[in-house]
Amino acid sequence: MKGSSMGYLLKTGFKNVYMNRLMSFASIGVLVACLMLIGSAILLSMNMQVIVGAVEDENEMVAFLDMDVSDDQARQIGDEIAKIPEIAESYFYSSEEAWAEEQKKWGAASAMVEVDVDGNDLGPILPDAYRIKLNDVSQETLDSVTNQLLQIDGIDPDIRTPSQEATILSDLERAISTVGSVIVVILAVVSVVIIANTIKITIFSRRKEISIMRLVGATNTFIKMPFLIEGMIIGLISALLAFGGLWIAYNYATQFIMQSPSSWLEIAVGKLIDFRDIATRMLAGFAIGGAGLGVVGANLFIRRHLKV
C-alpha cells in the first residue's frame, strides 16, 4: 500500500470519528468507564495477590511426626504427603533443624531439652516434621489437606495450619479474581457492542461513498480500513483517558487506605503496588486492549453489514 493511501485512510478514519462525534463521544465515554473498571479489577486483584503472597510466605502447614517414628517410616510418610494434589511442595524438617532454629530464636540457654532428674541430656523433645507449602491457602484446601494428612499413620493430629487472616485473604483474592474476570469479560463485550454501533452509524452515513468506492474499483480491504481505523482511534483515545483516570483514582484510593488505621488493612499498607511501577505495562495493556476492542467492534459490524 502506497504512502498516499495510508495517509488517506488515516485521515478518513479520523474524519469518521469527528463527523460522527456525538456517537464517538458516547462510545468513548462508555469505553473509558469499561476500561477503568477493567483496570480496577486488575489492580485490585494484583494487590491482593501481592498481599496474599506475602502472608502465604509466612504461613505454611507443619505436620509433626509421632516421636516413635523411625527414619524409614518418616521417608514413607514423606512419599504419602507428596501424593496429596493440593500440595505445592513439602520437605523434611528434622528435629535437629528445628532445635537449631529454636536455639537461634531463644538463645542457647533455652530449656527446650528434656533432662532427667540427674540433669543428663536426653536429646531434643522437638519431633521431626514435614513443612508443607500449598498451592493456595483457602479454607477449603486447608480442610482437605488436613483430612488427608490425618489419614497418614505416624502424623501427630495436631497439625499446624496457616493463620486465619491468610485464609480469609486468600479466599477473598480468589473471589476477587473470579468476579473480576467475569466483569472484564462482560465489559469487553459491552465495549465491542458499543463500538460496533458507532461504526454502524458511520457506515450508514457513508454508504453512498462506499457504493462509489466499489464502482471505481476500491478493494474490500481499502473500503473496510477507515472503519477499522475509526474503531482503533476510539479505542486508543479511551485507553489514554482511562489510564489517566485510573492513575488518579488509584492514588486517591491508596492514600485513603494508608490514612485509615484499620487493623486488617495494616497488612496491606507498605505492600500496595505503586502505580508508577506498573504504569508502562498498564498503558501498553490499555492501548492494546482499547485498540483491540475497537478493531474487533468495528469488524463485528463490517462483517455483518458492509457485505464486502
Partner: peptide
C-alpha cells in the same frame, strides 16, 4: 452519484485515492 460533502476536485480525485494511485499522479 457525487458525494455532496466533497468539492468537484475531491469527487474526481476520490476515484484515484481509493484505488491506491500516488498523490503525484492524482
Amino acid at each position: 452519484r457525487l458525494i455532496p460533502q466533497m468539492t468537484v476536485y475531491d469527487n474526481v480525485a476520490f476515484a484515484l485515492r481509493v484505488t491506491n494511485v500516488a498523490s503525484r499522479s492524482i
